[in-house]
């Protein structure tokens, strides 16, 4: 380590930097440039003609708008349902004793230990007999299954971290069990739960395997539409514009996360 990180030349550090630039910054930058390029011929380092032509072309397509609406609806529905189902379950896992508790917790992990694609295919076959393939409900269910692990494990850990004495102190000043949860446990666990909700939203927004196997062809989300466009017509700009559009939700999620989890958590005094 001492040898690798001497002042003279840090091979290791520069190596990582080069790797990051080459495989992450450059492709992202290229996609971004393509989205605003109307013409870009080979030897030129930058696009030869800039413009928003492909943006208006993409935005004029009704399938883009319907895919965007589908994606947002789907992500919102899945996040809301997941919260309604998983948060009470997480609280139960954190605070109550019941037979088979650790087995349940492990089972959420096990579901993720198998290759997801195979799992989704077998579920899709099951859905076929239930007439759920190609329906919004079917996609919602498959996405819900995907979010279970995240939405149970993270909030469980968050609820578990809330000090018992804090809850008892609330009982002591007159709070009912529900009021303790509402005014003490939930606010204390909130930063972590918010992170789990945001991750669920973003995860569902970008998920392709389940959405494709269960939803196609009738339910088309943004990532699916992008794949389709890139496959069918080799106009790079269409894919690039969609990619930039697809960044918007994750960017918004990250900014929100910084506000909610970062800022607030410090104000609330995690050091407490």
């Amino acid at each position: 380590m001492i040898f690798l990180s001497t002042r003279r030349f840090d091979f290791f550090g520069y190596g990582i930097l080069l790797f990051l630039i080459f495989f992450i910054v450059l492709p992202v930058l290229t996609v971004f440039l393509w989205a605003f390029a109307e013409q870009w011929f080979y030897p030129a380092v930058l696009p030869t003609k800039w413009g928003f032509r492909f943006w208006s072309l993409v935005l004029a397509r009704p399938d883009v708008w319907s895919a965007l609406i589908t994606s947002v609806e789907l992500s919102l529905t899945v996040t809301a349902l997941s919260a309604v189902i998983c948060l009470p379950a997480a609280y139960a896992f954190a605070r109550m004793e019941f037979p088979g508790k650790s087995m349940f917790m492990m089972s959420f992990l096990m579901a993720n230990a198998f290759p997801r694609f195979a799992l989704i295919i077998s579920i899709a076959v099951l859905f076929l007999s239930l007439d759920l393939v190609g329906t919004f409900t079917g996609v919602v269910i498959i996405q819900l299954l995907n979010t279970l692990l995240l939405m149970i494990w993270l909030p469980t850990a968050a609820f578990r971290a809330v000090s018992r004495e804090m809850e008892e102190a609330a009982r002591d000043v007159g709070a009912s069990a529900w009021q303790v949860f509402r005014y003490v446990t939930l606010p204390q666990a909130f930063p972590t739960i918010a992170a789990a909700l945001l991750m669920t939203f973003v995860w569902t927004f970008y998920e392709t395997e389940g959405a494709w196997l269960v939803g196609a062809p009738r339910i088309r989300t943004m990532p699916l539409l992008m794949m389709q466009m890139i496959n069918n017509q080799l106009v790079v700009q269409y894919g690039a514009v969609l990619s930039v559009m697809l960044w918007v939700p994750s960017l918004a999620a990250i900014l929100m996360a910084r506000r909610i989890i970062g800022g607030d958590a410090f104000a609330k005094g995690l050091g407490g």
Binding site: M166, A169, S176, Q188
Partner: peptide, 19 residues
């Protein structure tokens, strides 16, 4: 239950609500 008792407790860890 504690919420219905005319008692009040000071806890060892102070147990203030940090939020």
């Amino acid at each position: 239950p504690p919420e219905k008792r005319p008692t009040a407790m000071v806890f060892q860890s102070h147990a203030l609500w940090s939020h």
